[in-house]
Amino acid sequence: MTKSFYGTVLSSPLMLGTAQYPSPDILRDAVRAAQPGVVTVSLRRESAGERAGQAFWDLIQELGVPVLPNTAGCHTVKEAVTTAHMAREVFGTDWVKLEVIGELDTLQPDVFGLVEAARILTDDGFKVFPYTTEDLVVADRLLAVGCEVLMPWGAPIGSGKGLNNVFGLRALRAHFPDVPLVVDAGIGVPSHAAQALELGYDAVLINTAVAKAGEPAVMAEAFRFAVQAGMLARQADPMEERDMAVPSTPVVGKAMLA
């Protein structure tokens, strides 16, 4: 069943980041090839002379894809909350991908700060997409403070390692069957994205895997197909795994040749 994200059904379970592309033209081509349900965006200091942000805003408008602003780079609750407020004004949306980073080597979320920031923002009318771990207790706390979507990591941001803790992600899915879940971070190749959808996740968020591919637009298209394949596979109800072989070719009627 297709779940909605705060009442919005996405056109695709692929969420695409807009950072690190070699050029704006390549970003534009990648977004067109990926056909994502949303693109993620951010805020940075603007120079009055260069006005780089204005050019990027024009590009986002041209692409016509819903935006999900993030609070990337924030390490404290105050920073994240203030950034979310600025993003709401600039991008004209109350959606926010909430990141409160707790550790620099892994960019692991500070889940304590995350819950606190999520509480403040949901109380203020934000629709929070929290970047979290697969921890069930943290997930429960995030839902309790008003989050209606969870975004557990697959692996550290930018690592491309895929789904590091399939058991944990599967447990999260089973524990919260009605909550829209998005694997955010760590996906490196389309098969990782398909795997997340096969596990029953509702979407994946990709950035580095597309932006740092040799041919970003081609990789974007590959991810478009991968999420479709994963979603269809989930709907088709995959077979149970077995530890031992079971012949797929019927043995009844086999010629006795030994």
Partner: peptide, 10 residues
């Protein structure tokens, strides 16, 4: 004073 604008993000 901080002045920020839209920027690429992941």
């Amino acid at each position: 004073v901080e002045i920020v604008a839209p920027m690429q993000g992941g």
